[in-house]
Amino acid sequence: MFEIKNLKASLADEDKQILKGMNLKVGPGEVHAIMGPNGSGKSTTSYVAAGKGGYVVDEGEVLLNGENLLDMEPDERAAAGLFLAFQYPVEIPGVGNMTFLRTAVNSQRKMRGEEELNAAQFLKLVREKAKSLKIDADMLKRPVNVGFSGGEQKRNESWQMAMLEPKMCILDETDSGLDVDAMKLVAEGVNALRDGKRSFLVITHYQRLLDHIKPDVVHIMADGKIIKTGGPELALEVEHNGYADLLNEVA
């Protein structure tokens, strides 16, 4: 389904390799978590998979249903079914949230050769998806993420995810900057999208999010690669003992 194969990537501006041979395989319907200390390359993994500029891929592949995403533009990756919920959602003044997402939904449909949604169909879909995430009309009308609270921004990411119905979702530190209630709301949004087929890669620094979004597999990342893979108990181990022991283990 989704596979990262021996991915090595460097910064474009500096001669510095960040990802040093990432390997990961997420099956259909599975939820995997990546945990790891700050600076280990978790966000970089998500950016390289989604196609952000500023990185050079030195080696490796990122496959979604057998297609190498690295050969595609970011918009094509999205249309192929990849969704990245950003650690820091971007504020875009002057672009209405609703207009933005309607353009996104229809661009994807067009690329996939599906019929575009008209205004009424789109609005119906919005109503369906907005309710459970407590997205109010005001948030839809405002410019994308501008003046949104941390919780609103993350709910907005979840709403976009729900609207776009991706096959593979990468969530980068979705819990950062959220209080417990806000985190629960976002987690519920994610759980509602678990349908046995859609896969998730949940990046988090802390275990607490994984109490709400239960992973099947937990990976520990350090210095640009996965150093250990296990079940949910691995997250608890990190919670109790920190990363130090694990890092020593490998060293």
Binding site: G51, D75, A78, F83, I92, Q108
Partner: peptide, 18 residues
């Protein structure tokens, strides 16, 4: 901002126009 728009499936030209 361009990357954010494109990551949602909006092609470069349209994203730039937005």
């Amino acid at each position: 901002s361009m990357f954010y728009l494109m990551s949602r499936g909006i092609p470069r030209k349209i994203a730039q126009n937005i």
